[in-house]
Design a protein around this nucleic acid. Sequence first.
DNA 1: ATCTAAGCGAGACGGTACGTCCTGTCTTGAG
DNA 2: CTCAAGACAGGACGTACCGTCTCGCTTAGAT
Lengths: 197, 197, 197, 197
Amino acid sequence: MTAGVSSSAHRNGPVRSDDARRAILMATAEQFMAKGYERLTIQGIATAAKVGKQTIYRWWGGKADLVAECLVEGVLWDSGMVVGDTGDVVQDVATWLRLLLDVDQSGAGESLRSLLGAAAGDESLARHLDDLMRGQLEGGITRRLRLAHERGELADQVDVALTTELLLGLVMVRTLARRPSRTEELEGLVRLLLDQR
Amino acid sequence: MTAGVSSSAHRNGPVRSDDARRAILMATAEQFMAKGYERLTIQGIATAAKVGKQTIYRWWGGKADLVAECLVEGVLWDSGMVVGDTGDVVQDVATWLRLLLDVDQSGAGESLRSLLGAAAGDESLARHLDDLMRGQLEGGITRRLRLAHERGELADQVDVALTTELLLGLVMVRTLARRPSRTEELEGLVRLLLDQR
Amino acid sequence: MTAGVSSSAHRNGPVRSDDARRAILMATAEQFMAKGYERLTIQGIATAAKVGKQTIYRWWGGKADLVAECLVEGVLWDSGMVVGDTGDVVQDVATWLRLLLDVDQSGAGESLRSLLGAAAGDESLARHLDDLMRGQLEGGITRRLRLAHERGELADQVDVALTTELLLGLVMVRTLARRPSRTEELEGLVRLLLDQR
Amino acid sequence: MTAGVSSSAHRNGPVRSDDARRAILMATAEQFMAKGYERLTIQGIATAAKVGKQTIYRWWGGKADLVAECLVEGVLWDSGMVVGDTGDVVQDVATWLRLLLDVDQSGAGESLRSLLGAAAGDESLARHLDDLMRGQLEGGITRRLRLAHERGELADQVDVALTTELLLGLVMVRTLARRPSRTEELEGLVRLLLDQR
DNA sequence: ATCTAAGCGAGACGGTACGTCCTGTCTTGAG
DNA sequence: CTCAAGACAGGACGTACCGTCTCGCTTAGAT
């Protein structure tokens, strides 16, 4: 078992077609972007991917599975959402937050809502989405906060992970409620969360 | 129209049946609880309410409308979720938060998720839900916070509305992600948000 | 209400669409002629009849039901197959038989075979087909034989019904086996069956 | 080819597996008996025979071929259906006929019908079935009739082959129509066909 | 006291998508 | 080159709902 797999217990026969798999995920992503989760159809994906429906059902359990795998593969979710480092952590975080919420107001917000709706209805998709988001945040806002912490820009009692989650929660609430956010409000909020003294 | 003259624009024939309306909303609420939003069907509601499908389509536009009206009527969403007043605002808010997140872990969380999923897919439903939640919070946690503010238990810079929204966001994130919360963690969080100095 | 039916037990609501029914039967007949029973598809019939599949399944149980009703309606089965009356019963019957078997050799035989195949697999269709055939024969060959009997052209012991059935059986055997028949042979056979002395 | 020289034009690799062939035919026969022709599936046969689907398609063209070969092999069609010889040819033939039609009323009739249905849809299968039946009859009823003919029990004009075919046709008609037959009726019929004077 | 005209329950209609099953071909690794 | 296994594109199956339309009934203001 060390390096090479054990050989035995090897099935014969044709192996899963990676072409088909990729075409299906691509088609899923495309249709998801275009129509949202609810109006995705397996039928439509199969047709777009030039694939038999059964090839989808052979490997996935339904729409939720497909979308979850799209997430994992990064076929959906392009947002790198990098956080700048101007030296002023409050400014940086506020900017990041405003971008996120503005993006929502634009059109990508619909995608996020769709994703949240899907997550609401499917536990495994929700977990994938959660993992993914946490990962993305880890490489972005969380890292920036941690950096600020090390630099002593944050009060000691600020919990980086929790703060991240609170920010994420705010994004969700406002995205779902379709409520726009004023820049000053966001700055006040960030100051409150970080700059507290 | 000025003085409301007797005749003009007067319909004849029977008026809308309130029996039907109530039966439909009840059936909607029931099925929503039992199966969630996605698996609601107009057909099923009509049958359960012993009502013709057309009677639904005559007055509502679809599932979302029905659920929205259920929300407004309070047929869904029993959670009064009162906040106690022990004098210790941190304790009170933490308790409230824990109850909310525990309720989720139980079974009502599925309903909340369903509602969030519905809101994700339908703007008007989302607005209704948002209004409703804000109203509920206004009478509960927000009031408690405001009270504490007046008593001087909170730092001056604490923004009651924003804090409420942050707490709500946290509930959403954790509910959607199905992540359980530890009591101590919540207390720390609340202390952080309120007790800051 | 005077001479009318009992009134009560009357369902309300829309009534079965006769347009749809006829379109479906027509489409069934058409496709049956063109492709035979085995390659009939409900899907294809629905499409050709510009009808939803469910409208077919609402009123019929499957292909066999449809074809059976086509038979009953006479939408299939145009063959009047009249029997002449030249005075010579042997000649008349032999001619009828030859026509029947020649028709088979042409193209309509495929339809008959299809029908037999369908009857083999579906009891109710088989009964309908049997009834129909007997009816048709009754108005044709059977009548001619009965006429001959009354005229004393047949031996006393000839049983008209049985003879008809034997002739029909012969047609079936040869149709299924795709074996052609020689004219002289048929004349001999008919002479044997009728002219016996 | 004369002396079977060693080298030239010799295929390498394994030759056709007779195990597979037999397993496939057995499975075909079994499933045919159990479910009839229409509901036979290649997939099902392959699985039951523990054989790859391709092994079937390599050597046969489809269901019809398989069933035809089953017929030829005698895996289907056990009915020896011997005809007795009591000296009274009418009695013997009537008994044979009755047995055949009773067998139908029991359960084997379903198999016969299935076979007829298959023959209706596939010419080559029909020819095989026809050959087989004629062969079987040759060794049974036809021989008995010929014997009677030689003994002078039959009128001169009785044509043995034709009579056989008429009897076979009768069996088919009644089997397809699922119509039962009374014993006396059959005796009358046989007397009519044979004993005519 | 009619006469409209709407609301009602029921449910048929043309459709779309579902998830399953089978077809006939292709692919893989073993023998 | 055959075999067992089984993935593949395709397509029909029978079911569930969609949103619209139609039916015969009941009801209530206007005439």
